Amino acid sequence: MAPAPPKEPGAPKRTRNSARTKAAILASGREEFAARGFEGARVDAIADRAGANKRLLYHYFGNKEELYRAVLLDAYQEIRRGERALSLDQYDPAQAMDRLVRFTFRHFLANPWFPRLLGTENIENARFLKTMPDIKALHSPLVGQIAAIIERGNSAGIFRRDVDPVQLYISIAALGFFYVSNTATLSVIFERDLTSMAMVQEREAHAVQMVLDYLKTREG
């Protein structure tokens, strides 16, 4: 039997890294949807930015609507992973709340696309979020974790008991979300550069103090 012919040099077999391609499409999708909204986003632009052809995009995600849902889910999973990594149960209640407020503020600050993406979904009246069963399961542990911090703080005599963990988290998120999503207009109105490090640090400290002051036990 004749030996097989040698392989031609310089022609390595190409392999497709599906995980890397999907991640690139997701990252590209979050940029496009955050910048142009759902209606204005173009699949061609997403594929081009990701360095993938449109056929691969449809292969992995099905259509524009499913890609948008995947981008939303990935965005929420990312912030939840960050919150879990804080290991808040290892800290005393005041420190745990301090860490949560700072993390939330910094997450919005470091990812300005996130407030824009959430703004897009609110313009859509959360019509895509309503069809995503995984979302509730993602948020439930966070609410439980905040409730546990409040309970520990109350047992230690430093936090009020009458605090709704959902309302508290909405307030924590709002303190960072509004600042980041309105930096440009607020900087003009108040004639301050809210993007400067000094202003950002001042705002973060202000957010922490507001939350901790709200949680303090009431005397008299």
Rank of each mutant, 00 (worst) to 15 (best):
L194Q: 02
E151G: 01
E78G: 05
H107T: 02
V166N: 08
R127C: 12
Q95K: 12
Y214A: 07
M132Y: 07
S181V: 09
L168E: 08
T120R: 07
P3T: 04
L186W: 03
A75T: 14
R42T: 04
Q95V: 13
Q201L: 08
E78Y: 04
F159N: 05
R192V: 05
T185A: 14
D89S: 14
N63D: 15
D48Q: 10
A41E: 07
P12N: 05
K136P: 01
A47C: 06
I146Q: 08
Y179I: 09
D162T: 12
L109P: 02
R49I: 00
S171E: 12
Q145M: 11
D164R: 01
A198C: 02
S18N: 08
Y60I: 07
R49L: 11
Y179Q: 13
D74N: 11
A35E: 06
M1G: 15
N53S: 09
E121M: 09
L88T: 06
L109I: 00
E32M: 10
V143S: 03
L212E: 02
L212N: 05
D74Y: 06
F38S: 02
R20Y: 13
T195H: 02
E78H: 09
L26S: 10
D48E: 11
F108K: 07
F177E: 14
P5A: 15
E202V: 00
R55Q: 09
V166F: 03
L56C: 00
K54T: 05
K22E: 14
D162H: 08
R160S: 05
R218F: 01
A207S: 15
P165L: 10
N182C: 08
I172H: 04
L109V: 00
N125G: 00
A174Q: 13
A156L: 06
E31P: 02
D48M: 01
F105N: 08
L215F: 01
F114G: 02
L168R: 08
L194T: 02
Q167N: 14
P5Y: 04
K22I: 12
L57E: 07
A184C: 01
T104L: 06
Y58L: 12
Y76A: 00
E191A: 05
W113F: 09
W113R: 13
I189T: 11
T120M: 12
F103S: 07
L118D: 03
T185C: 06
K64V: 12
G29R: 10
G51C: 07
A4T: 07
K13A: 15
E204K: 04
P93A: 10
F159M: 06
P6K: 14
E32Y: 06
Y60A: 03
N182R: 11
Q90A: 15
R203E: 13
R160D: 03
P5Q: 14
R203K: 14
M97H: 02
R30S: 07
A173E: 12
V163L: 01
L215V: 03
A147F: 08
A23D: 14
S187W: 08
I79T: 09
H59G: 01
D162Q: 12
R127H: 10
F33A: 03
P12D: 04
G51S: 09
S140E: 15
Q90F: 05
T183W: 02
R16Q: 05
N182L: 10
Q145G: 07
L212S: 03
H59L: 12
A148I: 01
I149T: 11
L168T: 09
R152F: 10
F38V: 05
M1L: 09
V43T: 15
H139E: 13
E83D: 03
I25C: 09
R55P: 00
R81F: 01
G119I: 05
S181D: 07
T15K: 15
D98C: 04
